[in-house]
């Protein structure tokens, strides 16, 4: 035992001497994670306490699982989980393939100029602040907005689209695709650029048309990228940012729009119930990690690609 240990330290020292510069390079990211991702975890403890800012985290009284019980018995519990889940699933279902399709289409475009133009135009919304993006969406959706102009053209009645709970999810997901599609396609375009052109030649000699080439050469070539991206995406499944919802929703569409993170926000910052909202947020994270583990496992089982 002892000998083994010494040899480990000996090896570690040797490694340190040899790769010192690499260790130094690693230092900033490690510090970043410690400071901004691990240290704040201490604050999660307030989910089990009755936190008051003036008393401090350490001195606030311990209440155990009370806040969790309150959330689980809340009338909104079921609806919040359902809304969060559905919005995420739709976002994944429609939002995930969209950039892949755009990348595949762009890949087939022969005119460089046209391709560049399309790329630039589709990237653009990514660089606009979310606040502005939602502002644009809101302006489009009001009764005098462009969507209603189209509706009115076909004889429909002008209504505020953002006040219709049935349309909320489509608007949310649709605007997400619009603002993110160009940026999301970069990575797939990079992957596509790396596909060996000999494969296409071989396929076309074997008699494969464009469609067959797409199915048998292109997609398999970029599938590791797709799957890695998919796993990363699933890991964020329940963690939709509250910002966009907060900027888009109103009380008329709470029924479909209110998600766990906006509820946390309203309770925490609006009602100053820090501990309760920390508990709700922690619950959200717990679901996240379960989903991530499950996705990774499924992926490893069926595709030989996984995060770890």
């Amino acid at each position: 035992m002892k000998g083994q240990k010494r040899s480990f330290w000996a090896r570690a020292r040797k490694d340190w001497i040899r790769n010192r510069s690499l260790y130094f390079l690693m230092l900033p990211p490690i510090l970043f994670y410690i400071l901004f991702h691990y240290k704040p975890m201490y604050g999660v403890i307030i989910a089990f306490k009755d936190y008051s800012p003036t008393v401090g985290i350490a001195k606030s009284p311990w209440v155990g699982l009370e806040h969790f019980k309150r959330f689980f018995s809340s009338v909104y519990f079921g609806r919040l989980v359902r809304n969060t889940f559905l919005l995420n699933v739709y976002n994944l279902l429609f939002g995930f393939p969209a950039p892949i399709i755009l990348a595949l289409l762009l890949n087939e475009v022969r005119s460089r100029r046209f391709k560049n133009a399309v790329q630039t135009i589709t990237y653009m919304p990514h660089f606009i602040s979310l606040v502005v993006i939602t502002g644009i969406v809101k302006d489009f959706c009001v009764s005098t907005g462009i969507f209603n102009d189209v509706v009115a053209l076909f004889g429909g009645e002008r209504t505020n689209l953002l006040m219709n709970p049935g349309l909320y999810r489509s608007l949310y997901v649709g605007s997400g695709i619009w603002s993110g599609i160009g940026w999301g396609s970069i990575i797939y375009l990079a992957a596509l650029a790396g596909v060996d052109s000999q494969l296409y030649e071989a396929a076309s000699i074997d008699g494969a048309g464009k469609w067959k080439q797409l199915i048998h050469v292109t997609l398999p070539s970029i599938s590791p990228t797709i799957i890695t991206m998919l796993i990363l995406r699933i890991g964020q499944l329940m963690s939709l940012g509250y910002e966009k919802t907060l900027l888009l929703y109103n009380s008329a569409v709470y029924e479909t729009a209110d998600i766990i993170s906006t509820y946390t926000y309203r309770m925490g910052l609006g009602n100053q119930e820090w501990s309760y909202s920390a508990a709700v947020g922690l619950f959200n994270s717990a679901i996240n990690i379960v989903l991530l583990l499950a996705a990774n496992r499924i992926s490893r089982k069926y595709t030989e690609t996984s995060l770890w």
Binding site: I186, G194, L199, H216, P220, S223
Partner: peptide, 18 residues
Amino acid sequence: LGMRRVKMKSKRLTALAL
């Protein structure tokens, strides 16, 4: 099959982009 036939070059590129 196709996946395995992909050359190293593309993998590296993808990793970088990722």
